[in-house]
Design a protein around this nucleic acid. Structure first.
Lengths: 109, 109
DNA sequence: GATATTAATCGTAATATTGCAATGTACTTA
DNA sequence: TAAGTACATTGCAATATTACGATTAATATC
C-alpha cells in the first residue's frame, strides 16, 4: 500500500517518525551538516556542494522547511537558508527522549 | 526514481540516514517503545499491542533486526525479541552527534 | 524593456515502502 | 503421526519517494 496507518499511533510516535523520516535521506543529512558548518547558506552553494541537480536539492530543502527545521529568507535573487534554532532544539528534545530511553538491565534473550 | 544516490555521500551521512529511515515509521517507533517498556517480548504481543496484521509486524521487526537494533531468539514456538543494547548504544552515539551539533551563534536570516 | 541569475514548481519515470492474504516452516502437544 | 500454535516468507496492489528536464517566477543588471 505504501500508506502508513498513522491514525493507529500516538501523536508522539507520529512526530518522532516524521522527524526521523526527514533525516532518512543522506542528501538531507548532508544539507543539514553543511548548514551547521557555515552559518549562512544559499541554495546554489548546496547544489555545488552536494552532487544533485538543482530541482532535487530544492525539493529536499522544501521538506526540511515544511518540518520547520530550516528557514529561508529571500536575499536578492538567491535564498539564504539556515537552521531554525528554536525548532531544531525542540525536535532534538523529542528525539533524545526517544533515543535515550533506559536500556533494560536484565538480559532477556 | 525512488533511488537514493548513496554513493555521493559519506559513510557517516549514509549511516545516519539508514538509522533515521528505520525510525521513520510510527509502527517501528511503537515496537521499540514497547520493547523498552517491557524487557522481554514475543511477537504475538506486538501484533495485539499495535493494530497491524502479523505479517506487517514481522516485516517491521525484520528491518529493525537487519540494522541490528533488536535481536530475536527462538523460544519454543514463539520468538523473544528485545533491544540489542550494544548496537543501540552505538547507534545512539552516532545520532546524538548529529542532532547535538552546536547551533550557530549569529542570526543569519 | 531585454537579458541574466537564482531558485521554485511541474511533469514524469524509476524505484521503494507499506500492508495484508495466502502460504510455508518449525516446533509442540495430543 | 496429526493437529495446533507462532512466526516468517511470498506475492501483489496501492501509495510514496527520489531524481531530473523543462518551465516558471522573481529579482537584478544592462
Amino acid at each position: 500500500m505504501g500508506l502508513a496507518k498513522t491514525e493507529m499511533f500516538t501523536d508522539l510516535q507520529n512526530e518522532i517518525a516524521l522527524y526521523a523520516k526527514v533525516f532518512g535521506h543522506p542528501a538531507r543529512v548532508s544539507i543539514l551538516q553543511h548548514l551547521f558548518k557555515i552559518d549562512t547558506c544559499v541554495c546554489g552553494d548546496l547544489v555545488n556542494e552536494i552532487g544533485l541537480a538543482q530541482p532535487t536539492i530544492s525539493q529536499h530543502l522544501k521538506e526540511l522547511k515544511n518540518l520547520g527545521l530550516i528557514q529561508g529568507t529571500v536575499e536578492g535573487t538567491s535564498v539564504c537558508y539556515c537552521i531554525h534554532k528554536e525548532n531544531w532544539t525542540q525536535m532534538k528534545e523529542v528525539m533524545l527522549k526517544f533515543l535515550d530511553q533506559d536500556l533494560p538491565k536484565s538480559d532477556c534473550c
